[in-house]
């Protein structure tokens, strides 16, 4: 079953589902207003409606909309992987989806640029640019490339912590010499506007998969799918707006000092370098180990928790599984 019809079935079939505490202030409203979607070329999308939809519109309209997945190839989005100064681990994480990667490329996205996997030299126009790595400003080519990426891509995603925060390109450990100067490596957000962050070192394959599916829905989906995708992507857009620095200390400043930490331990599980222990109910961070990847804060349920999306976890997980050709009932 195609993703769209599957999603449609799920999200139009159950008008009575929304339940539980609804977050005040309707999160779905804003994301459409940020940089990304207004530059969307809707020409080839089936309906030329703007992405912007009022937040509290219920997902329930006309089941008979255009069935787009009948010609899936024409409706794919274009994705590029732009490799700045990173270790290729993020790309490996994407590729780690194995068959899932092929499903993505067969059904939802054309990989139009990727120095490692595709034979294209110049950065082309694309819907989504996944940028891995920070930018070495001593290298004019890199600076050119990141600017061109911004010009040519509708949505720029900082894929991984080096692109988002500098990460190991600025905070490598082990007493090695910094060559060239670590101060030269800037997170891409210090040079261009970034629409969306996918932090962590590397971001898990599953998170890349989820964002790819949601980006597809945002650009090619029906109105209600766009609304869901916008709500899903909003916190990641907020992260991009939050700044180009991350640290385990974010937990202290923005969660504990805010009186929000409840000691669940998620941050400790998320940390790739095991810099976090939960001691007497709160995270204790070994700052010497921290590589500033932002995974802990992003993963913390008290950094953001959007009920409107997460309350639908069952339906969304099933839809993603179905999109990737897995599971089923």
């Amino acid at each position: 079953m195609g993703l769209l019809s599957y999603l449609k079935e799920i999200f139009t079939g159950k008008q009575e589902t929304p339940e539980g505490p609804k977050a005040p202030g309707a999160p779905a409203a804003k994301p459409a207003a940020t940089a990304a979607p207004e530059k969307v070329k809707v020409a080839e999308a089936a309906e030329a409606k703007p992405v912007q939809t009022p937040a509290d519109v219920k997902v329930e309209q006309k089941p008979e909309e255009k069935i787009m997945e009948e010609k899936p190839v024409a409706d794919k989005i274009t994705i590029g992987h732009v490799h700045m100064s990173g270790c290729t681990g993020c790309l490996v994480s994407l590729a780690d989806n194995y068959e899932g990667l092929f499903t993505l490329l067969d059904n939802y996205a054309d990989l139009v640029y990727c120095l490692t996997l595709a034979d294209v030299r110049d950065i082309p126009k694309m819907d989504v640019a996944l940028v891995e790595g920070s930018v070495c400003i001593n290298d004019p080519h890199s600076v050119e490339d990141i600017k061109k990426t911004r010009e040519n891509a509708t949505i720029v995603v900082a894929l991984g912590a080096c692109a988002a925060y500098g990460n190991i390109t600025r905070f490598a450990r082990g007493g090695q010499w910094n060559q060239p100067q670590h101060e030269s490596y800037l997170p891409i957000g210090d040079l261009i506007d970034v629409d969306l962050y996918l932090p962590a070192c590397p971001p898990s394959k599953e998170s890349i998969r989820n964002v790819a599916v949601m980006a597809y829905l945002l650009l090619k989906g029906t109105d209600e799918q766009k609304e869901l995708a916008a709500a899903y992507l909003k916190p990641l857009m907020d992260l991009a707006a939050r700044g180009t620095e991350a640290c385990g200390c974010d937990l202290i400043y923005d969660v504990i000092n805010q009186g929000l930490c409840m000691g669940c331990g998620t941050c400790a599980a998320a940390c790739p370098v095991r810099a976090i222990d939960i001691v007497y109910g709160k995270p204790q961070i070994d700052r010497d180990l921290c590589i500033k990847c932002g995974a802990c804060y992003t993963q913390c349920p008290r950094s953001f928790f959007n009920f409107d999306v997460i309350n639908q976890f069952e339906a969304i997980s099933e839809a993603i599984d179905a999109a990737m050709g897995k599971g089923g009932e």
Partner: peptide
């Protein structure tokens, strides 16, 4: 809640 967020936004939750 943390678990469900980790399933939908699993940035640091490989596998």
């Amino acid at each position: 809640q943390a678990l469900r967020k980790a399933q939908l936004y699993p940035v640091g939750m490989r596998s």
